[in-house]
Design a binder for these strands. Structure first.
Length: 610
DNA sequence: ATCGCAGACTCAGAAATGTAGCG
DNA sequence: CCGCTACATTTCTGAGTCTGCGA
């Protein structure tokens, strides 16, 4: 005799005493009820800013109050028994040099520390932190032995993992206290979550790809480096004891609460609000509205750039071809970058001759352009695209008499392009094409792929496939997780196991049916048949679910769906689809995504069209 | 007037952390 | 029942886009 939990049909053996199971079941129910109640409360407290009037142009808030950013703890000297060695001898480093040495030691397992650029940059900056004595002594990184520091660090990480439940809870509560105090601000009478209220701790700069500055020391930020922005009439945040702010200003035309200049690239860093905030949400909404405006005039714009390709002006022709790429391939604008300051990556306007190859004929297609370049974050863009004859001819022209390293569009830059675009439609820039093409693709794909008659798993697979089409368009890639092949194999063996189980269940059902025939009108046997039938059905459902999961995972191997979902797809398309398909929203958006898109969830009906 | 550059903001994947489901 | 692991979510901060201002 056993109970079968409807949520876990797989567990069929009565391994546990019924009493404990019952209890935990009740507990689960109670927890669920609590969650629902909490969610409802949250919903009631939510600021429905999308129902309010907008501020006049440029004003971002009328009141802003916060506690200032949260600073990381000061560095503490290493314990006495942990030593750094130079040339085989113990060297006791001063506080500053030791801290930086530890940054390097912590990364010893990482590939970074084997790269020459990284090592040289690190060593140069490290020496700057040394005392004169240290600097005289330590002149060769290869003679430095950080292994004891490295081991200590690993042990610390390990120790944190094996803490008892109680200790972990204490830490969690301490963290929550910090979030409560520093993680929120008051903006126009509403409590809003801050995104990154923690000051970035010092460390070694890690760029993406072959970054010329990798390994440089990212210095500790002091309150003296930080500018605070808040309302004049608010309670001004208190700097840490013994310190003062660089400046306190009251600029309500910007959205940041604090800012500082980072020393490696000299760029500004900001403390800003969480994506669920009004300030971010309103901007997001506006972004999709501009993209929808583009939708209504994109045909005209397309016609125009097709015409412009024939223009007598070289500048116009280049602009037209670039726009053709941006529209068709969802390329980024491609601003110029300072050479030697960052990794060598490009976008549309900054493409060089070496990044494309022209094929009059390739794989049965005429006029094929082969793209191969590193884009944002050094993600490779590789694509073979058939283009119109006109575009093809122009590309040949643009490449004539140029070296591989020369700009493809030598008469064009993003400023020129965007000026042209904004003359076609106010607010139109190159990146709007990415948003527009991403969202329209999602809408079309959902329309094509999903059917009301599909089962829930199939509907979700279709949604993911539509999402995936967008991710492919936008070239959102990821490195397959290290465990990918293994986990795929695991899933497959699970599927195989389930298949066998299904076969078994089927034959048992047959047998049971025979029995019934033999001893007709035996009620008990009839019940057995019913039970076996259910078992078969359950098995089939489970199998189907797993197979869909396997398909989805395989197709997702190198594709990252998150970025497009979060930044390119008008959430109203997804909300409307859920309503039409009767799919619960939380199947496609997790908690923070629902928070971010609260405006869309609230205002969108099943009839929404992008 | 224009041009370059700082400033402000969005977008990006990796890494860290949390959690659920499994044996 | 409990620890472990795989997967999901969150955090982190670097890398883009684009605007507006001052020389």
């Amino acid at each position: 005799m056993f109970q079968c939990n409807p949520h876990k049909p797989k567990k069929e053996e009565a391994e546990h005493p019924v009493t404990t199971k019952k209890k935990s079941k009740e507990e689960i129910e109670a927890a669920k009820a609590l969650k629902i109640k909490k969610r409802e409360e949250e919903e009631q407290q939510r600021w429905r800013w999308w129902e309010e009037d907008k501020y006049e142009d440029g004003i971002k808030w009328k009141f802003l109050e916060h506690r200032g950013p949260f600073f990381p703890p000061e560095y503490q000297h290493l314990p006495d028994n942990v030593n750094f060695y130079y040339n085989g001898k113990v060297v006791k480093l001063g506080l500053a040099a030791e801290e930086v040495a530890l940054f390097f030691a912590q990364m010893l397992d990482h590939e970074y520390t084997t790269k020459d650029v990284f090592r040289n940059n690190f060593f140069k900056d490290w020496r700057k932190e040394m005392t004169l004595e240290e600097r005289v002594l330590i002149s060769d990184l290869n003679k430095c032995d950080f292994r004891e520091l490295h081991t200590m660090h690993k042990e610390k990480v390990e120790a944190r993992k094996v803490l008892s439940k109680e200790e972990k809870l204490v830490m969690k509560e301490a963290n929550q206290k910090i979030v409560e105090e520093y993680g929120f601000c008051i903006l126009d009478h509403h409590r809003e979550r801050i995104g990154n209220f923690k000051i970035e701790p010092p460390g070694l700069f890690r760029g993406r790809g072959e970054h010329p500055k990798q390994g440089m020391l990212k210095k500790r930020i002091q309150p003296e480096d930080v500018i605070i922005n808040c309302a004049k009439k608010s309670c001004i945040p208190e700097p840490p004891a013994g310190h003062h702010w660089k400046e306190v200003r009251h600029d309500n035309t910007v959205t940041w609460l604090a800012s500082w200049t980072e020393n490696v690239q000299g760029s500004c860093k900001y403390v800003m609000l969480n994506p669920s905030s009004k300030l971010k949400g309103e901007k997001d909404w506006e972004k999709y509205e501009v993209a929808r405006r583009l939708k209504s005039c994109v045909n005209g714009i397309r016609q125009q750039y097709q015409q412009d390709i024939k223009s007598k002006q070289m500048e116009t022709r280049q602009r037209a071809v670039a726009l053709y790429f941006i529209d068709k391939l969802a390329l980024r604008a491609g601003n110029e970058k300072e050479e030697g300051e960052t990794a060598d990556t490009v976008g549309c306007c900054s493409l060089r001759v070496e990044h494309i190859t022209l094929h009059d004929l390739l794989e049965d297609k005429d006029c094929v352009v082969e793209f191969d370049f590193l884009g944002k974050d050094c993600i490779r863009y590789y694509n073979k695209v058939p283009v119109t004859k006109r575009v093809f001819k122009n590309l040949k022209l643009f490449m004539k008499n140029k070296e591989p390293g020369d700009d493809l569009f030598d008469r064009l830059n993003t400023c020129l392009l965007n000026k042209h675009l904004s003359s076609l439609l106010p607010g139109l820039t190159a990146k709007v094409f990415r948003t527009f093409n991403a969202s329209i693709t999602l809408q079309e794909q959902l329309q094509q792929l999903s059917n009301m008659t599909d089962n829930p798993a199939e509907k979700l697979l279709s949604y993911n496939r539509a999402n995936r089409a967008v991710a492919v368009l936008c070239n959102h890639q990821r490195v397959p997780p290290k465990t990918f092949d293994q986990s795929m194999a695991n899933l497959q063996s699970k599927i195989d196991g389930r298949r066998e189980q299904l076969a078994l269940a089927k034959s048992e059902l047959k047998l049971a049916k025979k029995e019934v025939k033999a001893h007709s009108s035996d009620g008990k046997l009839q019940a057995v048949v019913e039970r076996k039938k259910k078992a078969v059905q359950r098995c089939e459902e489970q199998l189907m679910k797993m197979e869909v999961q396997a398909t989805n995972r395989e197709e997702n191997k190198q594709i990252a769906l998150g970025t497009s979902k979060l930044n390119y797809l008008d959430p109203r398309i997804s909300v409307a689809w859920c309503k039409n398909m009767e799919v619960p929203l939380d199947k496609i958006y997790n908690k923070s995504q629902r928070d971010k898109f609260a405006w869309a969830v609230d205002m969108t009906g099943a009839d929404f069209i992008f």
